[in-house]
Design a protein around this nucleic acid. Structure first.
Length: 505
RNA sequence: GCCGUCUUAGCUCACUUGGUAGAGCGCCAGAUUGUGGCUCUGGAGGUAGCUGGUUCGAAACCAGCAGACGGUACCA
């Protein structure tokens, strides 16, 4: 391959400099963001455990066939998921495709099917961790994000759905969201399926079209949905979206169905009963819904927290009954003051066929997924959630190479007192070291210079106090020599002083 | 995926219709040999997204590609 030699020095490998950037759709997280997500996960996990769900962690990768219908095919192995082909075997046969999980539900179905005989039933577990989707990223929409799920596998009782809803509501409260900032919207797939079947709309493609149209209600309004149910709709950019091609009577019925929401749960049930009178399947769904309502009443879940909304669709084809969607109502604005719409911060529903894909045995299941990353991002934009910055350690100033041992000894003593501490490990002078501590948002700096060493003392500078005092000093010399917030104390007293500084944070 | 807009320093953006780049902020240093802020002074940092074309000459004009943003579709 000598003809493939580099054409010039610019293609010489040793001159190649990769551009330092995160992959598209992936984001780095700094300490304060990690802390915010951890707080959410801890709070929500606690709620899940209080309700009796046990923790479960499964692998990031699953065999593609276990992930369901989104498995890659030969032509497009990566659409939707991040997939790799496992090593080929010794006979050179193709390896199996594996893909990163795109949610926690499909791995749960696999786990439940694999371990079914040994599990207590119904099996109730929660899981949290990153999931990955290989699709176009956007603001608030990354290709790697955190979810926290709870599911009940092995019961078809609507009460299980109601409990999952109550769990979600309690989870949002535990996450520190003010009352009224989220609402759980509940629907049931059987309602619309029943309605469509009773209207003679039985074509699968047509039914999907109806779901897609209804899903756009919040954005396009009733008139937009009407167009999409019929012939189709042309948007402002001139792009034409094909409609579901229903006849006028069917369109009217679907619109009446969709418009039945926006009222108390019991009122919505009454309205739906009128629309669905001709449909046995619809009435069955309605019965499920009313039992969910009764259980929610028993659990004390109010109308402000959970409502029935026939326009909720959820794209997932695997949902077979109840579906839930958590909508964030908080008004969030970005740094520029622009309104940011976060929309859905969680969702779920009943999927009665997922485990059966593996075992052939019908195992009903229901669950909810909490959108940790998106919720953390939303909270960060609210006053209450303004990321409290992560404070750094006490920084011990390194004056001279020969005394490093003494600095590390002090660091150990401070840590033993329960306070994070570190010795400055760079090679810069004192000024830079102070600046370093300032940037780390350290509560204090500890100094053992020649004077302190001779006297067995430590000098502690309270950086917050110093900052406050600095506001009134404009002369730099006065500021420096005044040493605001600084005291020199015998060693043990100095550590006690650090304790009081840290305690007041 | 489709349509549109955009891409100049780490960030936010300029550069009077083609004559090889500037500001603010940030960063580093000094004023201040053991003191973070303020102020002043200085400095580093750019093959103008990439590739090709037009031109004596391109950040600017044209084409392709990549990326970002907005809309739309899809969304487990």
């Amino acid at each position: 391959m000598t003809d493939k030699a580099p054409k010039s020095t610019e293609t010489d490998p040793k001159d190649f400099r990769p551009e330092a950037r995160a992959p598209r759709g992936f984001a780095d997280k700094r300490a304060s963001q990690i802390a915010a997500e951890r707080r959410l996960i801890t709070a929500v996990s606690k709620v899940y455990e209080d309700f009796g769900f046990e923790a479960l962690q499964t692998s990031a990768f699953e065999y593609a066939d276990a992930l369901g219908k989104f498995l890659p095919d030969a032509d497009r192995p990566n659409v939707g998921v991040f997939a790799v082909e496992d090593d080929a075997d010794s006979e050179g046969k193709n390896g199996q495709w594996m893909a990163l999980r795109y949610d926690h539900t499909a791995p749960l179905a696999r786990f439940a099917a694999q371990n079914w005989d040994g599990l207590p039933k119904p099996f109730r577990r929660y899981a949290f961790g990153p999931v990955w989707r290989n699709e176009k990223p956007g603001p608030g929409r990354l290709r790697e994000f955190m979810q926290c799920d709870a599911d009940t596998v092995g019961t078809d009782r609507p009460e299980a759905d109601a409990e999952i809803i109550a769990l979600a509501v309690a989870g949002f409260k535990a996450a520190g969201l003010p009352a009224g900032s989220t609402v759980l919207k509940i629907n049931n797939r059987k309602l619309l399926n029943g309605l469509l079947n009773s209207l003679g709309v039985v074509d699968a493609g047509q039914q999907m079209g109806v779901l897609r149209a209804i899903d756009k209600l919040d954005r396009l309004g009733l008139t937009g949905v009407e167009l999409l149910l019929g012939g189709g709709r042309k948007d402002e950019s001139g792009d034409f979206t094909k409609g579901a091609n229903l006849n006028d009577a069917a369109i009217a019925a679907v619109l009446a169905f969709v418009a039945a929401g926006n009222a108390e749960r019991s009122v919505v049930l009454d309205r739906l009963a009128a629309v669905l009178a001709n449909s046995p399947e619809g009435m069955a769904g309605l019965d499920d819904l009313s039992r969910i309502g009764a259980t929610l009443n028993g659990l004390g879940v109010g109308e402000a927290d959970a409502i029935f909304d026939p326009s909720i669709v959820r794209g997932l084809e695997y949902y077979t009954g109840a579906v839930f969607e958590a909508e964030l109502l908080l008004e969030t604005r970005d740094e520029k003051g622009e309104l940011v719409k976060f929309g859905s911060v969680g969702g779920g529903g009943r999927y009665d066929d997922l485990v059966a894909r593996f075992t052939g045995e019908k195992v009903p299941a229901t669950g909810f997924s909490f959108g940790v990353s998106r919720l953390a991002a939303a909270l960060a934009l609210t006053e209450a959630g303004k990321a409290s910055p992560v404070r750094g350690p006490v920084v011990i100033i390194a004056f001279s190479d020969s005394d490093m041992g003494e600095y590390f000894k002090l660091a150990s003593e401070i840590r033993a007192a329960g306070i994070p501490a570190e010795v400055y490990l760079g090679r810069s002078g004192m000024k830079a070291q102070m600046k370093y501590a300032d940037r780390r948002l350290s509560p204090a700096v500890a100094m053992i210079g020649g004077d302190e060493l001779a006297n067995g003392t430590v000098t502690i500078k309270d950086l917050d106090l110093g900052r406050e005092m600095a506001a009134e000093i404009s002369d730099n010399k006065a500021w420096r020599e005044g040493r605001p917030g600084q005291v020199t104390l015998p060693r043990q007293e100095a550590i006690n002083h650090l304790k009081t500084i840290v305690k007041s944070l």
